[in-house]
Design a protein around this nucleic acid. Structure first.
Lengths: 193, 193
DNA sequence: CCCCTGCATTGATGTGGATCAGGAAGCATT
DNA sequence: AATGCTTCCTGATCCACATCAATGCAGGGG
C-alpha cells in the first residue's frame, strides 16, 4: 500500500531508508467500497487521505441538494476538506468512493509530528502544495473565462482517461455545467467531424 | 522594507536572529509606480514578489484584449505567474501596480537556496501554500455555484476594505462579471435597504 | 476654462446555458 | 421477463447575465 505513496514522494524529494521505515507509522490504511463515505458534510474532517488505489469524488451540496463536484481523486492524489482539517471547522465537503478504493489516512497530530520529525516530508508537502496551487490557479482562470465548450474540451484533453472512468453527468457537475449541456456539446463536436 | 515580511513569516513560524540576518540577502527590493509592470504576458517570470507596500493586480488577457483579473495583491501577499516561475514557461499573466508599491523579489536560484539553507522558510512556504489552497478551493466553489449577486456580496464581506482601494470595474473583472452587472447589483442592494 | 479620457449608471435587446419534460438503452436484482 | 435504477439523449422554454448604446460626471492637461 505504501509503494504508491513512496513513488509519489520520491518524484519530488529524496527519502532515506530510515524515512521509509518511519513514515508508515504515521498512517492508517483504509478500504472503501463503492459509494462509501470518507467524509460527510457537517462532520469534522479528521484526516488527510492519500489515494493508493481507486477513485473518489469530493463535492458540496447546494440548497436543492444538488451535488457540485470539486475534485476527482485517483491514484496519487490527496483528498480532504482542507479547511475543516486545518481549522477544526465543520466540513462543507462530502467525499465518497466512485470505485472500490484504498486510502492512507493521516490525522492532524500525526501530520504535525510527521512534518517536524521528517524534514523530507515538510519539503514534500511544500512542493505538493506549490504544484497544486499552479493547477488551481489554472482552474480558476478556466472557470471564469472559458465557455462551456472550452471547459469541456480543456478537461478531456488534460485528462483523456477521465471520460473512461467517470460518468458523463459527474464530469458535467465538475465543470459547473448541466448533464444536458455536456451531452449537447459532445453532439456538436461529433457532428463537426 | 523587511519588517512586513518578518511579521508575515512570524505569524506562521518562529525565526531566529540568525535567520533574520540571513533572509534579506536572498531578496532584492523594488519600487513600482502606478501602472508600472512587474510582469507582462509572454515574458518569463523570474521571481516571486512579496508586497511590502501598495497594491498590484494580476490578470490574463483574452482574445479580445479584455482583462480578467485573477488576484489583487496588497501588503502581505505574494504575486507571480507561479507556473512560469517554476517551470520556465512563458507567462500567461500580466502583473502591474494599481498604487505606488514596494515589493521584495526573490529569483529561482535564491528561492531554492533559501528553502534548503533556512528550514524555517521551507516551513513558512508550506504553511503559506497550505492556507492559499484553502482559499483557492473556496474561490473555485464560489465561482461555479454562486450567482453574480452572491459572488459580489461574498467578496465585499470577506474584504470590506477592497471597495475603497479598487475601482468597481476591476472588482467586476475579478468576479468574472461585467461592470454593468456589478452596478446593477449595487443598485438592487441599495434599493432594498 | 474647455476638452478629453475614464468610470459609473441606466435602459433596451440578445443569448448561452439552465430548467423542464419525455423517452430509450443498458444493467442489476428478483 | 419483469422491475427498477442509472445513464444518456433530445426538444421546448426560460432567465440571468452579457452586449450594445447613451448619458452624466469627475479629474487632469493644454
Amino acid at each position: 500500500m505504501f509503494t504508491e505513496l513512496f513513488r509519489h514522494i520520491e518524484e519530488k524529494t529524496a527519502l532515506t531508508e530510515a524515512d521509509k521505515r518511519g513514515i508508515p507509522n504515521f498512517f492508517v490504511p483504509k478500504r472503501l467500497r463503492k459509494k462509501q463515505f470518507l467524509l460527510q458534510e457537517g462532520e469534522y474532517c479528521r484526516s488527510l487521505a492519500f489515494v493508493a488505489r481507486g477513485l473518489l469524488k469530493s463535492y458540496t451540496l447546494d440548497g436543492g441538494g444538488q451535488e457540485h463536484i470539486s475534485l476527482f481523486a485517483w491514484e496519487g492524489w490527496w483528498v480532504s476538506d482542507f479547511k475543516s482539517f486545518l481549522f477544526d471547522e465543520k466540513a462543507i465537503l462530502s467525499i465518497d468512493a466512485l470505485e472500490q478504493s484504498e486510502v492512507l489516512l493521516i490525522d492532524r497530530p500525526n501530520y504535525e509530528r510527521l512534518l517536524v520529525e521528517v524534514p523530507a516530508m515538510e519539503r514534500y508537502f511544500r512542493i505538493l502544495y506549490q504544484n497544486s496551487l499552479v493547477t488551481k490557479d489554472r482552474r480558476l482562470i478556466v472557470s471564469n473565462t472559458y465557455s462551456a465548450r472550452e471547459k469541456y474540451v480543456q478537461l478531456i484533453t488534460t485528462y483523456p482517461q477521465i471520460a473512461q472512468r467517470v460518468p458523463q453527468h459527474l464530469l458535467a457537475s465538475f465543470l459547473g455545467l448541466t448533464p444536458e449541456t455536456v451531452s449537447r456539446i459532445k453532439k456538436d463536436i461529433r457532428e463537426e467531424a
